[in-house]
Write a protein that binds this DNA or RNA. Structure first.
Lengths: 231, 231
DNA sequence: CGAGTGTTTGAATCCCCTCAAAAGATGTGG
DNA sequence: CCACATCTTTTGAGGGGATTCAAACACTCG
């Protein structure tokens, strides 16, 4: 399972712990663009480590509105909360995606026996929680324009740290509706904010490719401080 | 350390693991109302398990605005993120408070050796993350009035599960400014929403004591589903 | 009884939403 | 390879929820 070893390289596990983790792998699964990877109910028996593509975690309200609560990038575990007692999140592939699938029960047993494995997952959850906490601040305190800028900075930085993109450009496989659902704003207003940023020469995007023309200015607008993303 | 054993009763640890945890305790600390328990910078060497009082986690923006990202109640660890590589949160006592203080480094070592201890903390982080994820949904999707109702339901439910309050009433040691900073709204509007709820006979509050007069209706407004809080 | 903190009210403004619909892009089948 | 259906982006107009500014009103406490 070379895929696995590559994906968890920066977890810094001993071979013993890597082995224990590998034992809990059920297999690899491929998803189509738009495919639901996990319904948002019940106690899911699996966990998904994304190795290719993008996915989103989201929650739905009764009126059908959707809040995206996280973007899952290659190397992320998309449904960490399935480890715990309760998971109320949906998981959906934004692009064709591939994930390594773990058995939840086996993983929990492995963690009980291998402390280092548990602390590795603990670290993952803490990272995801750090991002989430920043989302709360952005949603609560910032103007929409600042929030848009912040999310662009965040996504670029997360991709960049994994060496997946250029210094000032990246593929963003989202519709503006997806983007709006992450930012808690209407698609119409999202569109207007993005257009204004283009007209100001801050960014460009053709198709789903984003160029950040003025990285410094974008960071200023967002008050972006990457430290919450680690390293 | 009877305080400790009482506080972690529902972590369901073996005596061995309890012991390992107890070894990492530095002591007990008391805080005054309004006292800062943790600055929001640097790598804090301690963790705080609250055993009495209320506290808040928060983040500040450069312009001085504050977002509360969690309420810490007795039994909660207020600064779980200090376990990880990066912590950017402040922690502040809302009331006179008492906390059991752990040594971070010792705790990490203990977790590596005692998987069950690590998974217990993992569970704590997952719970806190579940609350946070719901906050994101509330901030992103809901009207302020619904959000106010939701936060009232959440706080009551969290206190109620620990047997700390009556079925439809509880002490809420917050100013309306605190409340507003948690909800991402202005104090003025917070005040107006609360007033309207009083006039409608939904709730009462005198001083810092809240009565929920119409639990069902409040839950309806909030679309409150307690499952994200566990049990 | 002033000082300080917290709550309440009023007025004006604006950011952002909703509704409605056109224009552009994408994809599928015949 | 084009026609049609579908998805996505864009534009316009109007309204409302929430903000900001300003100030009066309560409550607590030394």
């Amino acid at each position: 399972m070379n895929d696995l070893l590559a994906a968890i390289a920066d977890w810094k596990l001993d071979p013993v712990d890597q082995d224990a983790l590998a034992q809990t792998v059920i297999g690899v699964r491929n998803y189509r663009r738009g495919q639901t990877m996990l319904e948002n109910n019940g106690q899911p028996p699996h966990l998904h480590l994304l190795v290719r593509g993008w996915a989103i975690r989201y929650q739905m309200l009764e009126d059908g509105s959707r809040q995206i609560t996280d973007f899952i990038l290659p190397g992320d575990v998309g449904d960490l909360s399935s480890l715990g007692a309760l998971a109320r999140n949906g998981l959906r592939a934004l692009t064709p995606a591939r994930a390594i699938v773990f058995d939840r029960a086996a993983l929990r047993r492995a963690m009980d026996q291998h402390g280092r494995l548990a602390t590795a997952f603990l670290e993952l959850v803490l990272n995801s929680e750090s991002i989430l906490r920043t989302w709360v601040s952005c949603l609560g305190l910032r103007e929409k324009r600042e929030h848009v800028a912040h999310l662009l900075c965040e996504l670029h930085r997360r991709l960049w740290r994994r060496g997946m993109v250029g210094d000032h450009e990246f593929d963003l496989p989202l519709t503006q509706v997806d983007f709006a659902d992450a930012l808690g704003m209407s698609p119409i207003h999202t569109n207007r904010v993005l257009q204004r940023m283009r007209k100001e020469g801050l960014i460009t995007f053709r198709g789903q490719h984003v160029h950040i023309l003025h990285p410094g200015k974008l960071r200023d607008i967002a008050e972006f401080d990457a430290s919450y993303l680690g390293g």
